[in-house]
Simulated assay, not measured.
Amino acid sequence: MKRAGTALVVAGLAVVGLVGCDSGEPRSKGPTTTAKPALWNPCTEISDAALTEAGVDPTTEEKGVAGIPQSGWEICGWAGPDYSITVYTTNKPVADFEQKPGNVDFRDVTIAGRTGREFKVTGASKDLGCDVVFPASTGVVQLQIFNSAIKSGLDDPCAYLERVGEVLVPLFPN
Rank of each mutant, 00 (worst) to 15 (best):
P42S: 11
C130D: 00
V169A: 04
G113S: 07
C76E: 06
K120P: 00
V56T: 12
Q142F: 15
G102K: 09
I111L: 03
P42K: 08
C158M: 03
G30D: 00
C130M: 01
D105T: 14
N41G: 04
K29R: 13
G165E: 03
E45M: 03
S152C: 02
S148I: 05
V164K: 01
W40S: 10
L171C: 02
D22G: 08
K120W: 04
E45H: 07
M1P: 15
I68K: 09
A4Y: 11
P170C: 08
G64I: 08
D156G: 12
K92N: 13
L168Q: 05
A66N: 14
W78H: 14
P69F: 06
F106D: 00
I85D: 03
P37S: 13
A54I: 01
T44I: 01
C43V: 05
P31N: 13
T110S: 07
G5I: 09
G139Q: 05
D57I: 06
S137W: 11
V121C: 01
K63A: 07
N103R: 10
A38T: 14
V94H: 07
T59C: 04
S71P: 03
V15Y: 14
K120N: 07
E166R: 15
V19M: 05
K63G: 04
V121D: 00
V104D: 02
S125F: 05
G67E: 12
G113T: 10
P69W: 10
T44G: 05
F146H: 15
V141T: 03
G102H: 11
Y88R: 02
K63V: 12
V121M: 05
L154F: 09
A38L: 04
A95Y: 13
V16D: 04
G55C: 04
T60Y: 09
V94F: 09
G24Q: 14
L18V: 15
G80E: 01
L161I: 04
V9F: 09
S84C: 03
M1K: 15
N147H: 06
V140K: 01
T122H: 07
T60M: 05
V133T: 07
G72V: 08
P157Y: 07
A49N: 09
K36Q: 13
A136N: 06
G5E: 10
I111S: 00
T60Q: 07
G55F: 01
T6Q: 09
F172P: 00
Y83E: 01
V104F: 06
I75Q: 00
P31E: 03
T115I: 12
P58M: 04
V19H: 10
I150A: 14
A35S: 15
I85M: 07
N41V: 05
A11R: 09
T90V: 14
R3D: 13
P93D: 15
S84A: 12
T52M: 08
S125V: 03
A149Q: 11
L143R: 03
T34A: 11
G123V: 07
S84K: 05
Y160W: 11
T32W: 00
V133N: 00
T110D: 03
W40E: 07
Q70N: 08
E162N: 14
T89S: 11
E53F: 02
